[in-house]
C-alpha cells in the first residue's frame, strides 16, 4: 500500500512538469489556434541554456537563470516572428509541419552543440530525499514539484486577474473582436509565445534536474500533449489535474509493467481520449482533426 502511495506521489510530482509544459501549449493554442509541436524542444533548449550559463560559463544560478529565461524568450519570440508570422493565413497543417521541422532542427542543433550524452545539471534543487511519513520522494522531484505548483498558481492568478490576462483571453475568445476593442492581437500572439517559452524553460529545467539533460528531453512533448488532450485543448487550469493523472499512470505502469509499456502509454491515452471524450475533461471546444 505504501509503495502504491509512494508511486502515486512520484507520479503527481512528475506530472506537474508535464502540466507546466501543457499550460504553455494551451496558451499558444488558445490565443492563436496553433499546435506548437516544438514545445518539448523549447523545454529542452531552455534547460541547455541554463546548463551553458552555469557549467560552460561558470555563472551562478542567479546570473544564469535570468539569462536562460531571456534567451528562451528571444527564441520563442523569434519563432513566432520569423517562422509563424509569415505563414499567417496559411492552413494550419502548414504551421504544424513547420513547427515539427523547427523541433527537429532544435534537437539537431542541441546534439551538435552540446553532444548526445546525458548531461547532469548542477544541483539547483536539493537531491536529498524527502520523507513524508514513511514515504520517500527524491529531493529534486519534491522541490521541483513545489516550484511547478508555485509557477502554476502564479500564472493562473495572472491569467485570471491581470488586465493583460483579460486581453489574452479576449484574443482567445474572438480575435477580430479583440482587435476592434483596441487589442493588438499580433502583439498578443508574440506575447503568448514568449510566456510559453518561459513556462517551457521552467519545466525543462526541472525535468532535466530530475531525469538528466539530453537532446531527447524534447520527447517529453508526447506526455505533454497527452496532458493537453486529456485536459481539453482549451483548459489552462485543467492541465494540473490532467498532468497528475498522466504522471501517476505512467509511474504505475513503468513500475509494474516496465519501460516498454511506459513508452507507448501516452499514445494509447491520447487515442482513448480522442475516442471517448474528444473535448477532454475540461475543454469547451471540439478538437479539430489533425
Amino acid at each position: 500500500m505504501a509503495l502504491i502511495l509512494e508511486l502515486c506521489l512520484i507520479g503527481i510530482a512528475s506530472g506537474s512538469i508535464y502540466a507546466i509544459g501543457a499550460m504553455g501549449f494551451v496558451l499558444i493554442y488558445k490565443s492563436s489556434g496553433i499546435f506548437n509541436f516544438a514545445m518539448g524542444e523549447m523545454m529542452m533548449i531552455g534547460a541547455y541554456f541554463l546548463y551553458t550559463g552555469m557549467v560552460i560559463f561558470g555563472l551562478s544560478l542567479y546570473a544564469a537563470l535570468p539569462l536562460a529565461l531571456l534567451a528562451s524568450a528571444l527564441l520563442a519570440a523569434g519563432m513566432e516572428r520569423w517562422l509563424l508570422r509569415p505563414l499567417l493565413g496559411q492552413p494550419h497543417e502548414v504551421m504544424i509541419m513547420v513547427l515539427f521541422g523547427a523541433g527537429a532542427m532544435l534537437r539537431g542543433i542541441a546534439g551538435m552543440v552540446w553532444g548526445h550524452d546525458i548531461l547532469r545539471l548542477p544541483e539547483i534543487l536539493p537531491r536529498k530525499p524527502v520523507f513524508i511519513g514513511d514515504i520517500l520522494i527524491p529531493g529534486t522531484l519534491f522541490w521541483g514539484f513545489l516550484m511547478m505548483i508555485a509557477i502554476f498558481g502564479g500564472f493562473i492568478v495572472y491569467y485570471r486577474f491581470s488586465r493583460t490576462g483579460v486581453a489574452i483571453r479576449a484574443t482567445a475568445d474572438d480575435q477580430t473582436t479583440a482587435e476592434c476593442m483596441g487589442i493588438n492581437i499580433r502583439g498578443m500572439f508574440l506575447f503568448t509565445w514568449v510566456m510559453a517559452g518561459l513556462l517551457a524553460t521552467a519545466a525543462g529545467i526541472v525535468g532535466a534536474s530530475v531525469n538528466g539533460l539530453s537532446p531527447y528531453l524534447g520527447n517529453v512533448a508526447l506526455e505533454v500533449i497527452a496532458v493537453v488532450l486529456l485536459a481539453g485543448l482549451t483548459s489552462i487550469g485543467g492541465t494540473l489535474l490532467a498532468g497528475a493523472i498522466v504522471g501517476v499512470m505512467l509511474t504505475l505502469i513503468g513500475f509494474y509493467l516496465g519501460g516498454a509499456f511506459q513508452q507507448f502509454m501516452p499514445y494509447l491515452l491520447v487515442l482513448l481520449v480522442m475516442i471517448v471524450r474528444p473535448r477532454g475533461l475540461f475543454g469547451t471546444k471540439l478538437v479539430e482533426r489533425i
Binding site: 488586465r163 483579460v166 486581453a167 483571453r169 479576449a170 476592434c180 476593442m181 483596441g182
Partner: peptide
Amino acid sequence: SRMGLIHVREGRRVFSTMTVHENLVAASYA
C-alpha cells in the same frame, strides 16, 4: 479603435467565456 473609431460587429460578439465586467476591461485597450 484607439483613435476613436470603434466597430460594433454583427452578431454582438461578446467575449462569451468572460464576465460582463471583463468584457469592459478588455475593451479598455481602446
